[in-house]
Design a protein around this nucleic acid. Structure first.
Lengths: 296, 296
DNA sequence: GTGGAGTCACAAGGACGGCTTGTGACCGCG
DNA sequence: CGCGGTCACAAGCCGTCCTTGTGACTCCAC
């Protein structure tokens, strides 16, 4: 299990060029930085930086590890920002209520962007309080004023609320990389036993309805599981193809763990919307600022 | 800074359904699990799981945090596998030498897939020893036998070596999401001051050559920086557009931090190749197994 | 040439966090 | 009604990690 603090120190060393400078940057002494870096090197068995009497520079391996660390720490920062936004005790600024899909995959990076922007302007960042529930409850919370801003998924625009499309999600057919499909007609998809969520899940409904609209009836699933994560794991383990939200598997697609198979004649798009009450344009400064970071 | 161990415990609780079961799964006592989970909840100020006298189930917020944790821990596992592969002391199995681009962005997930596959078959995973350098040195190491397998970038196939394309990388023009470009002709790209790497860098050369081939001359850069990460940060900070490897910014594209702008009449593809010596098909079992996880 | 300011590394001491063991309260089931 | 399961609280202990103090070394200015 990698040590995030040590990786952060490595990045500080890369930026500062000296151990002491890195120490000042992260608020530690030079000795502590030296020890942590030595510990990281001992864990990997590779020299990550060459120390001279006048500074320290990363080796080639050090650059690679720094790159890995950078990705990891960026994601960790997103998670941390998300965790901070979950704090409910603070009776503060912008109350955001979001559906699970948005909260899980999109909001953290928006919040980081929001905070970075405030830092760039020298302002104190808006404090965001996040609640995560299903879309119906989000609508309810925005209606009754217990949330200033909501994020929902689904095709219908709730009556009496203002809204704006902030992102699109689509369900995609995915297989393991060694699968022989490259592109299939929609009829073959309907005839294939899939790994799916249990009946009643939103993702599964969308697919069923779309196939029914196309005049097709689905065969029985190969496997029914109760969470998207479990479905994803089953596909990776070779249990069969699945239709999943693209947002949930961008990492896997980028890393080549999963492969997307286009289905001719089928499009399963759904819109993710920001919703709020009141005037047509987003009301308070806070809401507008957050939305200004989100481009559909 | 989030606590990876605590997040892992949260996932174990989600899987097991009880704190004690989670404890058995991660090798801790029930009391330790209870304390760590309580600490995590106190950090967020939100109840992540409801404890009954007969188990524990995640709340809606808990599910969201678990999803974040899952992404973060997957990436952490990749980094950890990469770190393990850097260990040089073990005089062991498969010596892999890779260019920086491949080592930074692709190899970790391949190694995780390799290990997971071995675990699924019940075999002990191949021990991989990784060296990261530039493409020329990779070729040299494969030639002189100090590496069993190499990964390089570039258009030319080295003479005397077998090779296979394992992935493609392309340079893409990226801007901040609020930029007004949607698609531009190649002449406008050449006339735009960009944030770039310093002269002599591979990425910069590729762009310069491609523009020269198109009969265009580039204007002076807006800013010259020495690492890809610095260029990326400058673009995010609004310093201007840049042309970067798509592999280095997939996260940013997915999160909407950066936006890709198609350039009409310009394609900057480069192939990433596995190289080895000897017979036409990959030789030892180990090499073939690793390659079987990589599909171009 | 020599002192000063910078670099990094080694050693000793102390504080804090986190795990274990021990125990108690509660619930359901046979 | 006891037994097996759940989780929470308390005390003690161990290890990690940071700080302070010190030494070796290099470069530079005087």
């Amino acid at each position: 299990m990698p040590d995030l603090a040590a990786l952060e120190i490595l990045l500080a060393v890369a930026r500062a060029g000296t151990l002491s400078g890195a120490g000042r940057e992260v608020g530690l002494t030079q000795q502590a930085v030296s020890a942590r870096l030595a510990a990281l090197e001992s864990r990997t068995g590779v020299r990550l930086a060459t120390r001279t009497t006048r500074g320290a520079t990363l080796t080639a391996e050090g650059v690679v590890v720094a790159q890995w660390a950078d990705r990891l720490l960026r994601l960790a920062e997103e998670v941390d920002t998300g965790l901070a936004a979950l704090r409910s005790d603070s009776r503060s600024r912008l109350r955001v209520s979001a559906s699970l899909t948005v909260a899980e995959h999109l909001l953290p990076s928006w919040l980081v962007a929001l905070r970075a922007d405030a830092a760039r302007r020298g302002e104190t960042p808006v404090r965001v309080v996040l609640t995560a529930t299903n879309s119906d409850h989000v609508i309810e919370q925005v209606r009754d004023g217990s949330a200033d801003l909501g994020f929902i998924e689904g095709v219908t625009v709730p009556a009496g609320l203002r809204s704006r499309v902030v992102a699109r999600d689509s369900l995609v057919l995915v297989v393991t990389p060694d699968h022989d499909w490259s592109s299939i007609p929609v009829a073959e998809l309907a005839a294939t036993p899939l790994v799916t969520r249990e009946s009643g899940s939103g993702t599964r409904e969308v697919l069923t309805v779309a196939l029914r609209d196309a005049g097709l009836e689905q065969v029985e699933p190969a496997l029914e599981l109760s969470t998207t994560a479990a479905v994803r794991a089953a596909v990776l383990a070779g249990a069969g193809p699945a239709v999943l939200s693209r947002l949930a598997i961008t990492d896997d697609l980028a890393a080549g763990r999963l492969r997307e198979v286009p289905v001719a004649g089928l499009s399963l798009e759904r819109e993710l919307r920001a919703i709020w009450t009141g005037p047509r344009t987003p009301p308070a400064g806070a809401v507008r600022i957050l939305l200004s970071h989100i481009h559909s």
